[in-house]
Simulated assay, not measured.
Amino acid sequence: MMIDALTLDQLRILVAVVDAGSFSAAARRLGRAQSAVSYAIANLEAALRIPLFDRGDWRPRLTEGGRALIADARAILAKADDLKARAKGLAEGLEAELSIVVDIMFPTRALVELVAGFQAEFPGVALDLRVEALGSVPQMVLSGACRLGVQGSLPDIPPELEHLPLPEEVAVEPVAAPAHPLAGARRPLPDAALREQVQVVLTDRSRRTEGRDFAVLSRRSIRTADLGAKHALLRAGLGWGFMPKELVQDDLDAGRLVVLRLGNRRPETRSMPLSLIFLRADPPGPAGRWVTARLTGRGG
């Protein structure tokens, strides 16, 4: 097989395996079957005529040749992305439609203000708005289903995505109904007490967080991908959980929910940073740049 047979997709898979640490982790990150990742690497090794990974250990390690070529692979991919981005910027006019996916924890107030401003600025551009949780947000951007995303509940940002931090974080509070067993505690709650009570947690529709949990402290849980359903379950006293403070403020003021005092409050459970994400190789057009500037506070 000639070296001309290698593809950019094979190089992207090579970089994904190196960055993720294993073939299975790279497959999850790319949203592909592990067999497809292994096949692509085998074809790349055949095209280059050298082994890239030592597979003798439980975790694949780059060979000497692989270590020598990985920097070149990254450089080629960066140049290819730059080429596509430059060509797109030269050819693109105003979008006919803009698709955006926002994290389920993104404040409703900010979302309404964004949509109202967008409609006033771009009345002729259709807006396709999605709301997802955890890994489903970057997955929709990576797949091309959405042009822009606001990622929050998943801290990991894939290397294929450009990410710009939003200036405000989402305040998060652990809450429960007033009649819940944890609500009446006079002292800060230890982890042992939290572990014994059902926690209502958000789950991921994608497979990007398979086998991982975020801010799950209880041994028993109720899992839902719907923040509204989680809110209703908490108000019904069926568990405790972390919620955006803005969403439950009325319930806290009315006594329908109470804030739990945790003895060991982890920093990641106090607030959630948000990032605007898009494919590096597919930057937004005029309407998308307006959204980017509006959300991040940057001119553009």
Rank of each mutant, 00 (worst) to 15 (best):
L30V: 06
L30M: 12
G31I: 08
G31P: 04
G31S: 09
G31D: 06
R32I: 01
R32F: 00
A33V: 09
A33D: 12
A33K: 13
A33N: 13
Q34P: 08
Q34D: 14
S35Q: 14
S35D: 10
S35V: 15
S35E: 11
S35L: 12
S35W: 00
A36E: 11
V37S: 02
V37A: 02
V37M: 06
S38Q: 13
S38E: 10
Y39V: 14
Y39M: 14
A40Y: 01
A40E: 04
A40R: 03
I41M: 11
I41K: 04
A42N: 08
A42W: 03
N43A: 04
N43Q: 09
N43K: 07
N43T: 04
N43D: 07
N43R: 09
L44W: 02
L44P: 00
A46T: 15
A46H: 11
A47F: 07
A47K: 03
L48C: 08
L48T: 12
L48N: 06
R49A: 14
R49E: 11
R49P: 01
I50S: 00
I50V: 15
P51Y: 00
P51A: 14
P51E: 01
L52H: 03
L52E: 02
L52C: 06
F53D: 02
D54F: 10
D54H: 11
R55Q: 12
R55M: 10
G56K: 09
D57P: 07
D57V: 12
W58C: 13
W58L: 15
W58S: 15
R59M: 11
R59L: 12
R59G: 05
R59H: 12
P60Q: 07
P60A: 11
R61F: 08
R61G: 07
R61N: 10
L62W: 08
L62T: 08
L62S: 07
L62Y: 08
E64T: 14
E64W: 12
E64H: 11
G65L: 02
G66S: 06
G66K: 00
G66P: 06
G66F: 01
R67C: 12
R67F: 11
A68S: 14
L69V: 15
A71L: 12
A71V: 13
A71G: 15
A71I: 10
A71H: 14
A71R: 14
D72I: 14
D72M: 15
A73H: 05
R74P: 04
R74D: 00
R74I: 02
A75H: 15
A75K: 15
A75Y: 11
I76H: 11
I76N: 07
L77I: 10
L77F: 10
L77W: 05
A78K: 09
K79I: 00
K79W: 06
A80E: 02
A80Q: 07
A80W: 01
A80K: 01
A80H: 04
A80D: 05
D81K: 09
D81T: 02
D81I: 01
D82C: 07
D82Y: 01
L83C: 04
L83F: 05
K84I: 01
K84T: 03
A85G: 08
A85V: 05
R86G: 03
R86H: 05
R86Y: 04
R86M: 03
A87R: 10
A87W: 01
A87M: 10
A87N: 10
A87D: 09
A87I: 07
K88A: 04
K88L: 09
K88F: 04
K88R: 15
K88I: 03
K88Y: 02
G89I: 03
G89L: 09
G89W: 03
